[in-house]
């Protein structure tokens, strides 16, 4: 599959994530959109990993080129999991205090 397709796909997903961050007010949805962005990156990384692997395979049949990208994806997932735990804890804390998860509600700090 031409790599461009993957790039387009990943970038589109990424942009959708960004648009979500920009247009939604619910903190959880925003957070989910960020997760969407991360997944787009993951997909892109895996695609690139296979691309480089494919190039390397031509010369070396057992080439492990590109494996680091897949491991990177793994680490991204690790980080995402950690982030989720912290992030949700923060959102819950917020909700406990204000009974709202509307980010527009967050404007005590300004100017």
């Amino acid at each position: 599959m031409p790599i461009q397709y993957y790039i387009y796909l990943a970038l589109t997903l990424f942009t959708i994530g960004i648009i979500g961050v920009l247009t939604r007010r619910n903190a959880i949805i925003i957070f989910m959109c960020i997760e969407l962005m991360l997944n787009a990156v993951n997909l892109l990384l895996v695609a690139f990993s296979k691309m480089h692997n494919g190039i390397a395979l031509v010369t070396n049949k057992d080439s492990m080129v590109g494996i680091d990208a897949q491991l990177f994806v793994f680490f991204i997932m690790v980080v995402a999991a950690a982030e989720v735990s912290v992030g949700l804890a923060i959102i819950v804390m917020m909700y406990r205090n204000t009974h709202s998860i509307d980010v527009n509600f967050l404007n005590r700090l300004k100017n």
């Binding site: 990424f14 994530g17 961050v21 903190a27 925003i30 957070f31 960020i34 962005m37 991360l38 787009a40 990156v41 892109l44 991204i76 980080v79 982030e83 912290v86 992030g87 923060i90 959102i91 804390m93 917020m94 205090n97 204000t98 980010v103 967050l106 404007n107 005590r108 700090l109």
Partner: peptide
């Protein structure tokens, strides 16, 4: 403090997304 934390978290994660891209 809550607000700061959430803002920091959301924007920080967003920038992490950018960095990863």
């Amino acid at each position: 403090s809550n607000e700061a934390s959430l803002k920091y978290f959301l924007m920080g994660s967003f920038s992490t997304g950018l960095m990863l891209m």
